[in-house]
Design a protein around this nucleic acid. Structure first.
Lengths: 189, 189
DNA sequence: TAATTTGCCTAAATCTTTTAGGCAAATGCA
DNA sequence: TGCATTTGCCTAAAAGATTTAGGCAAATTA
């Protein structure tokens, strides 16, 4: 009996790759077992169940995204920082569509609170230090940025913008210009 | 043998209700059969397979959304129209989370082209007639609006904005204010 | 009323998820 | 080095989901 060397870590990593290849919805315990050429039941020593596997992939994606983001933000401020963060999300989604979909998985509150999700929130807030916004407008702006980043990327990935000129890169640039302008002149109540 | 009176129409409608109750991901041919107290195989006369069922639910949701939107837009222009359309999406998502999730299903190009999705695109474009935007900025703006609407609603629904003041209704209002201001003063290249 | 169509059935194959229990390889300790 | 323990992967098996094939009875039409 040859041991393949399964660990939770390796399974989750392979699951993330599988997600990028065939889509997050197609990530199943069986498919993962096939990939390791191992019986399905063997995975259940490392992963509680199917849902657990998916959650772990989501957490991995959130970590990776947060790592990229914090690196991209180092030394940048203002529009420079805004663009950098936005591109981290978009690039990651293009490179790793399955992982990106995983990152959207609804987590239960405790799990979410312990996840890298909180780092994301902090980083978006940090960007706004370059603009002159007091609470509660700062929070409104955080939510707007999150919505645009997530919304744009997921529509683009879902093909919502396809089959029409101008190309999406150009729109993306102009959208970031517009957001920057908006944040600089945020309308008073 | 008592006939329940299954039709594709009824199945899809019931599937949509099921989605709202238990989530779109949990919509399965088996669950639907249980709901009609009928054997699973009986559904396969009306629906090609599981994927077909899900696609049909998505198309239904897109139709319903487009109908609501076109009704809401009648007689409105400018910010009034912007707010009305935005609220149609948000309200629908809150009332019918499962259907809304279904509307996000990735459709193959031909299906998408034949769906109510094109009405949505037209309506968003129509709103921008109230603002002074020439192409390609109008397209950029259409995409921005789509991103914000979809992004905001899906983050809100996914709990991304929970556990923090100010409440999401207030943010929503302010985000729409901000978008209106942005469209009125869209930055030149 | 007879012929046809339609609606739901049983049966059966295949696949996924999950639990329980077991043997052998790797590891820790004397 | 030898033995005990832990760990990794196994077989077996149950339960649910998906899908196809073929059949009978009810509803519809002629």
């Amino acid at each position: 009996m040859v041991r393949v060397g399964l660990t939770t870590e390796r399974l989750v990593r392979a699951g993330a790759e599988l997600a990028d290849e065939v889509g997050f919805d197609e990530v199943t315990v069986s498919a993962l077992a096939r990939r390791f050429d191992v019986k399905v039941a063997s995975l259940y020593s490392h992963v509680r169940n199917s849902q657990d596997l998916r959650t772990r992939i989501a957490l991995l994606a959130l970590e990776e995204l947060a790592d990229r983001a914090s690196e991209a933000l180092a030394g940048r401020a203002g529009k420079d920082a805004l663009t950098a963060l936005a591109n981290v999300y978009r690039d990651y989604a293009h490179e790793h569509p399955g992982r990106y979909a995983a990152a959207q998985l609804r987590l239960d509150p405790e799990t979410a609170a312990a996840s890298a999700g909180v780092r994301h929130a902090r980083m978006t807030r940090a960007i706004l230090r370059g603009y002159d916004l007091a609470e509660p407008d700062r929070t409104h702006a955080v939510r707007l940025l999150g919505s645009v980043f997530h919304g744009y990327v997921s529509l683009e990935l879902g093909g919502g913008f396809s089959h029409s000129a101008p190309d999406t890169d150009e729109t993306w640039t102009r959208v970031l210009d517009a957001l920057d302008a908006l944040l600089r002149t945020w309308p008073a109540v």
